[in-house]
């Protein structure tokens, strides 16, 4: 790559050319990532379309597959590792994941409890949750 970037650029082209690459993957990385992604995508679709497992279990299995596939994409396609950008990419990612987990878990937790606690008049007892879900 560096000889070509020198063509397009002048005296400091070489160093920049090296930097612009950042941490880019190899053909092997992309191939491994692609094959893993295909497998990790095909199994969830198969589980749902063929109704292999009971719905409750399927939900948890789907989430597990999604989590693994996100990590696969991060490593093999986005080339995230602890040394990229002197570790700052990893730091930003970890920070985002923490904020994301707090926000998602917090919202879902709070909103489901609101649903359960604020509609006692509409349906009796344990039906309160279902009653709340019919709200537009």
């Amino acid at each position: 790559m560096s000889d070509h970037s020198n063509h397009g650029h002048d005296h400091h082209g070489h160093h920049h050319g090296h930097d612009a690459g950042g941490s880019h993957g190899s053909l092997k990385d992309y191939t491994i990532g692609f094959i893993l992604s295909v497998i990790l995508t095909a199994i969830p679709f198969w589980l749902v379309m063929a109704k292999v497992l009971p719905p409750g279990t399927t939900g948890y299995v789907l989430m597990a597959f999604a989590a693994v596939q996100v990590v696969v994409h991060m490593i093999y396609f986005l080339h995230l590792n602890s040394s990229a950008e002197h570790g700052w990419s990893m730091m930003a990612t970890i920070f985002t994941v923490i904020v994301l987990v707090i926000m998602m878990a917090g919202s879902i937790w709070v909103m489901y409890h609101m649903n359960a606690n604020m509609m006692p008049g509409m349906d009796a007892g344990s039906d309160a949750l279902h009653g709340a879900h019919d709200m537009p």
Partner: peptide
């Protein structure tokens, strides 16, 4: 138009 210059490689990345 400009080829695979450093700038374009950066944009591609």
């Amino acid at each position: 138009k400009h080829g695979l210059t450093v700038e374009n490689l950066r944009r591609l990345t």
